Computed example of a mutant assay.
Amino acid sequence: MARGKQYQTASGKIDAEKSYDLGEAIALAKEAAFAKFDESIDIAIKLGVNPKHADQMVRGSVSLPNGTGKDVKVLVFCKGEKQKEALDAGADFAGDDELIAKVQGGWTAFDKVVATPDMMVQVGKLGRVLGPRGLMPNPKVGTVTPDVAKVVKELKAGMIEFRVDKVGIIHTTVGKKSFENDKLDQNIRALLDTLIKMKPSSAKGQYVRGIALSATMGPGVKVDHHKLVNEL
């Protein structure tokens, strides 16, 4: 795959064969970011699981201590008093039948979706719209709940969802290039700590098998995952 001059220049700052301490990796990922906008800092974590087995599907959520740096628009499907609770907690949109019809029509001007349990039969009809975008509410990640206010606040503060892909890798965002290094460090450790606690009992051998950081447009930086896991 052909890469532009800026990417090649950025790659020259990184030893592709070396695994760096987390602090060094964060600094390098930021240094190698060349876009004019405030790029996200993304992480890829290779896990020793086989997602084809249901009991090894690693999926959940974690509240990053320093947030993601993104303005997250939250939609809540709920009825009655729950709508006021959701809006008071910071939800951008809250409603039931009318909102469902709007989404069925193709409207997707939101980043996260929460639903109360009693709304899930109706929300299930939105699978074709929400499913491909990864927005379908799910009790496993806490987005199907009667306590909508709590979840809305967590999402606004930086709660992220994660799900292992078909080859056993977790991909997610842990902050912005403009974040101080120690804040990115704290976010990464919080995510990794959560993943380790979720290790499936049926997963055999080494669990965390690789970690890489990168800015949105930048090259990847390998992290010394053995050292990092031992520090947690």
Results as ranks from 00 to 15, higher is better:
residue 214 S to V: 01
residue 147 D to G: 10
residue 208 V to F: 04
residue 75 L to F: 06
residue 45 I to T: 01
residue 76 V to Q: 11
residue 155 L to E: 11
residue 100 I to S: 01
residue 56 Q to N: 12
residue 73 K to W: 10
residue 97 D to E: 11
residue 99 L to Y: 06
residue 10 A to C: 05
residue 227 K to R: 12
residue 139 P to E: 04
residue 65 P to G: 04
residue 177 K to E: 00
residue 230 N to K: 15
residue 91 A to E: 12
residue 67 G to A: 10
residue 217 M to I: 15
residue 167 V to I: 11
residue 181 N to I: 06
residue 17 E to A: 05
residue 64 L to W: 07
residue 48 G to F: 02
residue 184 L to F: 07
residue 20 Y to S: 01
residue 86 A to S: 08
residue 30 K to C: 02
residue 15 D to I: 04
residue 122 Q to L: 09
residue 159 M to E: 03
residue 214 S to Y: 00
residue 61 S to V: 14
residue 203 A to K: 08
residue 133 R to L: 14
residue 55 D to N: 14
residue 9 T to F: 05
residue 86 A to N: 02
residue 25 A to R: 00
residue 121 V to G: 04
residue 110 F to H: 10
residue 118 D to G: 08
residue 100 I to G: 02
residue 65 P to C: 05
residue 86 A to F: 03
residue 212 A to Q: 09
residue 40 S to C: 15
residue 7 Y to V: 07
residue 11 S to A: 13
residue 88 D to G: 08
residue 96 D to K: 00
residue 168 G to C: 02
residue 224 D to V: 03
residue 111 D to I: 10
residue 90 G to F: 13
residue 59 R to A: 04
residue 173 T to K: 12
residue 108 T to H: 14
residue 191 L to G: 07
residue 91 A to Q: 09
residue 139 P to H: 05
residue 10 A to L: 03
residue 38 D to G: 01
residue 135 L to K: 09
residue 119 M to F: 06
residue 151 V to I: 14
residue 157 A to N: 04
residue 8 Q to D: 13
residue 100 I to E: 03
residue 7 Y to S: 05
residue 159 M to S: 06
residue 165 D to W: 02
residue 25 A to E: 00
residue 32 A to L: 05
residue 43 I to F: 00
residue 130 L to M: 04
residue 54 A to M: 13
residue 173 T to L: 14
residue 190 A to L: 06
residue 59 R to K: 14
residue 113 V to I: 11
residue 206 Q to W: 12
residue 23 G to V: 10
residue 79 K to T: 15
residue 90 G to W: 12
residue 165 D to M: 05
residue 48 G to M: 06
residue 196 I to P: 12
residue 91 A to Y: 10
residue 193 D to Q: 12
residue 111 D to C: 14
residue 93 F to H: 07
residue 93 F to N: 07
residue 135 L to E: 13
residue 26 I to F: 01
residue 142 G to N: 05
residue 170 I to L: 02
residue 120 M to Y: 01
residue 91 A to T: 11
residue 97 D to T: 07
residue 104 Q to K: 15
residue 168 G to E: 00
residue 149 A to F: 09
residue 18 K to L: 09
residue 54 A to P: 15
residue 44 A to L: 11
residue 82 K to C: 10
residue 216 T to K: 00
residue 143 T to R: 03
